[in-house]
Design a protein around this nucleic acid. Structure first.
Length: 543
RNA sequence: GGCGGGAUAGCUCAAUUUGGCUAGAGCGCGCGGCUCAUGACCGUGAGGUUCAGGGUUCGACUCCCUGUCCCGCCA
């Protein structure tokens, strides 16, 4: 049964290039899901884009002496390169796209017309020098609790106290550094989340979210929701479409997620099928999968669906949230570009081709708990499992087929081998469709183990057991097809050796004669000490 | 402080949903074998107080309680 599957990966914030953790939790995982469902014969589409608005990008651009637009465009281009290098095939746009602007403004007008938007006046910190309102984190001052001079408007990092901006002593603007801070009245528009609570509860109850996602969301709902501001007194963003809100923009989190819809619309516009998006969004039939880090869960199970519900347009709500824990740097440290901690997408590709990263990252994807990056684990996964175990098995079997049967091998795999392949396929399907990639990949690696074991036992190189070779080839075929979502370029190379043309998942069990190409190693082992040294060099150069 | 997640072999992970053979794999280590394959592969051995303590049970890694440590989120 063919189904429309929409994969929505969390939008990278375009203040800087994404790091390995960002990639594995969203875009890379999204690509693996996308490729899996396509392999299975579904009509799959994977969308995301650069989240380019907001204070942080304004600030980052200011620091670099360029405009927010220049910064986000630069980063967007870098991300496009990273996608290519990591073999991520998707529709990737930006929140600056005209389609997104139009869609966001329209849907907010609908939410307002349906009575889910209200406004109220409040006091906000204002920098007289910059002539702009300041987000909490952009006011710095002395902590009233511990006296640290570096407390922020929302929190003092030194003593941990949670603060309100007006509590700071000697407040100053982080952007210009001056202390001409005043508190001015301003009007903001709010999404009325309390009024959407019943509909949200119904939505969550009707979905079979994974245990952690469901529990987390339910506890937020049980605690009661508060209205959430959707406007900001900023220049860099999408102009708020409400009467009286001239000069204000929509809050980034209030518009970026809507990009899942607008990106789908844009994708079909470019294909000249302007109605095509409706088959994904205005139907119950489709399945929507969201990939992201755990910090994004409430936005995708509450804030975003609330917006869709408030529009009253009947948009399809999220079906599955595949949220990861964090990939941390060595020793559990948080990635930080400014402090030179961690590997970022662009540097990663200077060290190794994307396929190697894909295998390691998806194999170690932090689906259950935080995982620390480790060079040793990278080496183990790539050299030990992908190459020694899997790729060598592929080469082993095909080379033997070349040598003994001149590449022409009859189709007569043994039933017990087919049964093992079938079991693996079913387990892999179950894991991936349940939102998990790492266990699926581990299961595939086990099939290679089975293959090596089987070969050793049957000794087909002695020439008397052609069915063993046929079985080996069937295993190879299964392996490379199952691996396509994880390491696509590897599988595609192997397809050529096996004379397969765009195989489907179901072909794993199809029995047919083999006509083999000339075997050759498809991957080269990595030298981790050398990589480490080159990485140190990259970090040094960046400083 | 509240909520959630985690803790299993030196390392990375299974098994916990639904309590049930002797807690399993891979890597690493010791020994042996194979030699078709990228020094790859296979067998075998050593290696466990399943974080700690208590409880329920014929039986607990699994369920309940208390505590410790790690990671988040929130206040």
């Amino acid at each position: 049964m063919m189904k429309k599957i929409l994969i929505c990966s969390a939008w990278p914030y375009a203040s800087g290039v994404p790091h390995l953790g960002n990639l594995v939790s969203s875009l890379l995982a999204g690509d693996a899901f996308f490729r899996y469902y396509r392999l299975k014969g579904h009509e799959a589409l994977h969308v995301s884009g650069s989240d380019t608005h907001g204070t942080h990008i304004e600030y980052e651009a200011f620091k670099r002496g360029i405009s927010p637009k220049e910064l986000s465009s630069q980063v967007h281009e870098q991300i496009l390169e990273i996608l290519k290098g990591f073999e991520i095939e998707m529709f990737y746009t930006t929140t600056e796209s005209p389609t997104h602007y139009r869609f966001v403004r329209e849907i907010y007008r609908k939410m307002e017309a349906n009575g889910f938007i209200f406004s109220r006046e409040e006091e906000r910190a204002f920098c007289e020098n910059c002539q702009k309102f300041l987000a909490d984190r952009f006011i710095q001052g002395t902590c009233p609790r511990c006296g640290s001079p570096n407390a922020y408007g929302n929190q003092c990092d030194d003593c941990g106290a949670l603060l309100e901006p007006e509590e700071l002593l000697q407040p100053r603007c982080r952007i210009c550094g001056q202390d001409r801070i005043s508190f001015k009245r301003t009007r903001n528009w709010y999404l009325d989340l309390p009024r959407l609570e019943p509909a949200l509860k119904e939505f969550v109850a009707a979905r079979s979210f994974s245990e952690n996602v469901r529990r987390f969301t339910e506890s937020l709902l049980a605690a009661g929701l508060k209205p959430r501001a959707v406007t900001r007194d900023l220049k860099w963003g999408i102009p708020a479409p409400f009467a009286g809100a001239e000069g204000k923009v929509l809050y980034v989190w209030a518009e970026a997620a809507l990009g899942y819809v607008s990106a789908t619309i844009e994708y079909f516009e470019r294909k000249s099928e302007p109605e095509g998006w409706k088959d994904f969004w205005l139907t119950e039939e489709a399945k929507h999968i969201y990939t992201q880090g755990k910090d994004n869960i409430p936005f995708h199970t509450i804030f975003f669906p609330a917006q869709l519900l408030a529009s009253g347009e009947g948009y399809h709500l999220p079906d599955q949230i595949s949220a990861t824990e964090y990939l941390n740097w060595i020793g559990g440290a948080q990635f930080s570009k400014t402090r030179g901690i961690g590997i970022y997408g662009d540097d990663a590709l200077e060290l190794l081709p994307g396929a190697y990263w894909r295998f390691y990252l998806l194999y170690a994807r932090p689906e259950k708990k935080d995982v620390d990056f480790s060079w040793e684990e990278l080496e183990k996964a790539v050299n030990g499992i992908l190459i020694d175990n899997i790729s060598n098995f592929v080469n082993r079997v095909i080379a033997l087929g070349n040598r003994l049967y001149d590449g022409q091998v009859e189709a007569r795999p043994e039933e017990r081998v087919l049964a093992e392949i079938r079991r693996t396929k079913e387990q892999v399907e179950q894991e991936i469709e349940g939102g998990l990639l790492a266990p699926a990949l581990r299961r595939i690696a086990e099939l290679a183990l089975f293959g090596n074991h089987y070969f050793q036992e049957e000794r087909p190189w002695e020439g008397s057991k052609p069915e063993a070779l046929a079985s080996g080839l069937q295993l190879v075929k299964a392996l490379v097809i199952l691996l396509e979502p994880f390491v696509p370029s590897f599988s595609q190379q192997a397809y050529r050796l096996l004379n397969l043309d765009r195989p489907a998942l179901a072909d794993i069990l199809k029995v047919e004669p083999f006509r083999l190409g000339q075997a050759k190693p498809l991957l080269q082992k990595i030298k981790v000490e050398e990589l480490k040294a080159r990485y140190e060099e990259l970090v040094r150069r960046a400083r």
